[in-house]
Design a protein around this nucleic acid. Sequence first.
DNA 1: TAGCTCGTTGGACAA
DNA 2: TTTGTCCAACGAGCT
Length: 491
Amino acid sequence: MSPTPTLLWFRRDLRLQDNPALQAALRRGAPLIPLYILDDAGEGAWRAGGAARWWRHHALAALDASLRGLGSRLLIRRGNARAVLRELVAGTDAGAIYWNRCHEPAIEARDQVIQTEFAAGGLAVESFNGSLLHEPPAGLNRQGRPFQVFTPYWRACLALPVAPPLKFTAAALPAPARWPGSLALEELQLPVRARWAAGWTDHWQPGEAGAARRLARFASAAMERYADERNRPDLDGTSLLSPWLHSGELSPRQVWAAVKSRSKESGVFPPSNGARVFLAELGWREFAHHLLRHFPHTPAQPLRAGFAAFPWAADPGGAHLRAWQEGRTGYPIVDAGLRQLWQTGWMHNRVRMVAASFLVKHLRLPWTAGAAWFWDTLIDADLANNTLGWQWTAGCGADAAPFFRVFSPVLQGRKFDPEGAYVRRWVPELAGLPAAHLHAPWEAPGPVLAAAGVVLGQNYPRPIVDHATARLAALAAYHQLRETGPGALAP
DNA sequence: TAGCTCGTTGGACAA
DNA sequence: TTTGTCCAACGAGCT
């Protein structure tokens, strides 16, 4: 009797290389049914945002193409995952369900129920770690409690071995005698608003092959300069790997191995300071997932509970929020960032911090409003990273920035976009201004503005808030919060 | 255990 | 122009 088929449930692991669930399924030696289920309700309040859905669509298409090259295909379904699996198990007589774990609270809870139900029904139900270097319980301190400060957390992680990626070399995948019915990918209607995403394919190549190309390119060149150039939005200094890492066309173990392979000649690991700093960024990704796992309420609530009482500013009609979203704040580096986000689905990390700080501290709008916008517009939107980043900026999270640290958009612009190339690219109406005035056009002499064709208030806005005034108001608000009671800011 | 040090990413202001 | 100092306070983590 031939073994009953294996359902291989793809989720945030849309790849063939370094895929533990796939390897386990191959070892089982039964016909393989690769499956993707769009289960929006199962993702709770955090179903994938618009830009991330666009990416997901193209990543699924790439995965399906790879599978077809191996004599297989990707089965596509939509709806409640449990119900879909029940139906498929009944219809295919499947004897096993394998998947790689996700670490978002709603998904973990859903998967736990599924695991219990199908295991009780006699199926082999197994899940694997495919998305983190170190899954929990790694990340506990000596008291057995989760680290809440990055440096000791990462130091503890660095003492642990990292498994090498699993090589996929099969020439074909065992197919079932009869394929169950599948939706066409288009029927999932993942890429919303085609006009919005019109230019994204110029910037991105979703899919495993695009990920491998980008990783190879980064590791061979920019990584050495990463420590310095990662902060420069005008240069190609970051890895740009986040969207592939999020949907799992690339695994952190593959990234780790790529860095390690650069150490072969020198024998030193990490091979350079740039590589060390880059790996620490991978560490922040791990830390974010670690925190989300231990503090599952943090996507909506501050880790430091006292911050729930923060005196946010009123925003009648949502005018300030909208100006921020649309890149019309009058601060060029902030506007450039938000326009880059809208036009490409991505924003440089340094500019993310400046833009986020501006929303929370200059406009004093809730960090959750900014997190919601990023969630919908970032192709790399990741619940753990987004939550950590915004809470860090707002000062209400783990290892957060001190409250008095208010980024000056002008100084940040001058420091990290010194020639103004980044602002000129994304805020073309200011392109004619000399670098000396580019980051503070309201301070430019009239003739300079006129020569550049800039008419403040007409073709580029005046600052919607004054930096010095807004900074003092933010500091006052934090002081007010502190006076609401002792320990108000404690976790 | 008690005390000590430190905390990814900064900026304003005075001298 | 550059440099030093201050901006809070507290809990986590370490020794």
